[in-house]
Amino acid sequence: MNISEFLTKAWSPEPGVIALAVLFLAVFIAAGGLRDRGRTALFGAGVALMVLAVVSPLGHLGRNYLLSAHMIQHILLLLVVPLFILFGMPKGAAERALSWRPAGAVMRALGNPVVAWTLGVGSMWLWHVPSIHGAAIASDRLYAAQQVSFVLVGIIFWWPVFAPVKARRLTHLRSTLYLASACLGCTILGILLTFAGAGMYAAYLNPQDAAGILPYLRNDLCITPGVDQQIAGLTMWVPGCLIYLTASMITLAQWYGSPEADVEAAAQGGGILSGRGKTV
């Protein structure tokens, strides 16, 4: 199989992620999200990206050939897709849903910064324990659970920073700290993968070459198992960390954009209502 055949044929319909996508879209439409065009575009892009990351040849590569492809998929599912979905959530519907007491309580528990941070960074570490990752790519069910959990945990992780309801968010400076520390957590794992010896993940050492593209990967692209693991580690480290870093810069900018407490108090005291966010 040459590479263009691979790109056209290696699509794998993963039921788990497709079911999740259908569920997301159904809830979105039922919540009346279609009324807001901008949010519909964001939400739709998020769902599409989620499906593509798993169903497209990237998923096939990540599951069968390259740890680095898995890592790109992983960054997309855990860090990028949830952002699109959170920003695309219809605000009014989210407020209504959260005012229903059980839902509000669940999100309060999961969106607690300590819980969300531990889940977000912890899932990164847990799923990359070599034996667990090996089991996940060997078993269809575990693989589906892995992909779905990335997206769900990703939404929980970003919740304290970018929740659709402002009252649920951390104050700006706390968000900065939350993100910077998460960056550190993923950096350490990235460093580990980058500088560890090749072959931490045995499945990628000698993959069964069902699609017949291994010679292309190994000989033409020169991606040996060692290089593959390095790319994976560095992808988690540099682009992964840059996403956290950019987000923490955004929270810092929001902080500067909000008025000082005494300015706000004076403005309110003088009868001029300032409707902008809280200060730290």
Binding site: E260, A261, D262, V263, A266, V280
Partner: peptide, 14 residues
């Protein structure tokens, strides 16, 4: 510089 600010006399908030 910040015409709206009032003078704060109690502990720093920031």
């Amino acid at each position: 510089d910040e015409p709206d600010a009032k003078i704060v006399t109690e502990g720093p908030n920031g």
